[in-house]
Simulated scan of single mutants.
Amino acid sequence: MNDPRPGIKVSVVTTVYNGERFFDQSPPSILAQSLTDFEWIILDDGSSDATPRLLAELAARDPRVRVLSPGRLGRAQALNRAVGEARGEYIAIQDFDDVSYPERLLQQSRFLEAHPRVGVVGAHYVLIDENRAERYVRQPPTDHAGLRRAMARSIPFAHTMVMFRRAAWLQAGGYPVQDDIEDLALWIGMARGGWELANLPEVLGEHYVYAASYWHRNFSYMKRQRSLARVQVQAIRQLRLPASSYVYPLGRLVYGYLPTGAKRTVRRLLGRSSEQDT
């Protein structure tokens, strides 16, 4: 793993698999950031469409872009490989089909500079859910205590909206290599290691959920609910959260069978994440 390069504070990290149709999403939003001094590591995770060619063209146009093409690794291993190649002290995750607003990198890097005990910082964001035909602002907790408690109920960060310290990632042992929910498992590891968690109260990007996404083609809804419940139990045990918190992973196993309208109510009430329709 490379040591941070002097002068580079921020490394943006993206993994992409068959992302040809999303080249008008993350690339313009990252390359137009108000913070201009960063590197962007994009790992092509074995794409079979035009993604490799388009990534090569992107790297030729902007020297901040560095493309890795190790073949098919899978999500967690691809993230670890890309972060391991990063030369910055701060790692900003950017999914290829999402959008970051222009001030995102600047605001999050300044926050980490001012709060040396914080290992990971996210933000509020617009969620555009194609599956549920919903668009709203998601406002998860912003303080460490609230985020720690929230890990028993949900994933209190949009993975595509986080910036974390490379040192915190190393201390936690990187992303656990598992089929799903590797991001929540990483945040648990950081919290166990003594790092604080934070979300900025500003809306700094847009996260899209597509019906035809790779995840929705390969993981059933209930399988994800079971995986999330398992990692939530891990959070309760490892972070020594109150025993009453077990009601959340248990409830998640029932949640999948509720009517659509009831699911939305449960998400907003029990998830305790303020959401504003847009």
Rank of each mutant, 00 (worst) to 15 (best):
F22A: 05
F22P: 03
F22G: 03
F22L: 06
F23N: 08
D24F: 00
D24E: 07
Q25P: 00
Q25S: 05
Q25K: 13
S26G: 00
S29I: 04
S29M: 05
S29P: 03
S29F: 04
I30G: 01
I30V: 15
I30T: 07
L31W: 00
A32L: 03
A32M: 03
A32D: 08
Q33D: 03
Q33K: 02
L35R: 13
L35A: 06
L35Q: 10
L35C: 02
L35G: 04
T36P: 02
T36Q: 14
D37Y: 00
D37W: 00
F38Y: 14
E39Q: 12
E39L: 04
E39A: 02
W40N: 07
W40K: 08
I41A: 01
I42C: 07
I42T: 09
I42A: 10
I42M: 11
I42G: 06
L43S: 07
L43K: 11
L43N: 08
L43Q: 07
L43V: 06
D44Q: 01
D45V: 09
D45G: 10
D45S: 09
D45F: 09
G46D: 00
G46V: 00
S47R: 05
S47Q: 04
S47G: 04
S47P: 04
S48Q: 11
S48H: 05
D49I: 05
D49R: 11
D49C: 06
T51R: 07
P52I: 12
R53S: 07
R53W: 01
R53P: 00
L54V: 02
L54I: 06
L54T: 02
L54P: 00
E57D: 15
E57G: 06
L58D: 13
L58G: 12
L58E: 12
L58Q: 13
A60T: 03
A60R: 13
P63T: 13
R64F: 11
R64G: 13
R64A: 11
R64S: 12
R66T: 12
R66V: 11
V67S: 06
V67R: 09
L68V: 09
L68G: 09
L68H: 13
L68Q: 14
S69L: 10
S69P: 05
S69H: 12
P70A: 01
G71Y: 05
G71N: 10
R72I: 00
L73M: 13
L73N: 07
L73T: 05
G74T: 08
G74D: 07
A76G: 09
A76N: 12
Q77P: 06
Q77C: 09
Q77M: 13
Q77D: 15
A78N: 14
L79K: 15
N80P: 03
N80S: 10
R81E: 09
A82M: 14
A82E: 15
A82K: 15
V83H: 14
V83D: 14
